[in-house]
Amino acid sequence: MLTFTCPYCGVAAEESELTGGGEAHLKRFGPGSSDAEFEAYLFTRKNPKGVHFERWRHAYGCGKWFLAARDTNTLEVFGSYPAQTTEPPADLIAAIKNKRPGWEGWK
């Protein structure tokens, strides 16, 4: 069972206290967007074997959504951060690159 540190509460919470929310940093496409953009927004997901940015909600805790970078293969968690951002923090990216030199980046 996984654990993540909630960046709002500052405590490690186990998976049973959290709700997963899929891939992070999706850009919403609304009315006026093309079919291709809208399809990508709704359905196209990276699903990598390796570093993944994902959404988690501290559902049984503070109720806040946070984002985390996790290796889907080894389950190593590189870090978590508040959801109010459109891209991962630079220091987290640097830390991941340090641990996974071959990583092609988050976009």
Binding site: G21, R28, R55, R57, A59, G63, K64, W65, A83, Q84
Partner: peptide, 13 residues
């Protein structure tokens, strides 16, 4: 309620 909070926290913060 969770749906509302999701949009408020993650899209229109």
């Amino acid at each position: 309620h969770a749906w509302m909070e999701d949009w408020l926290q993650c899209e229109w913060w």
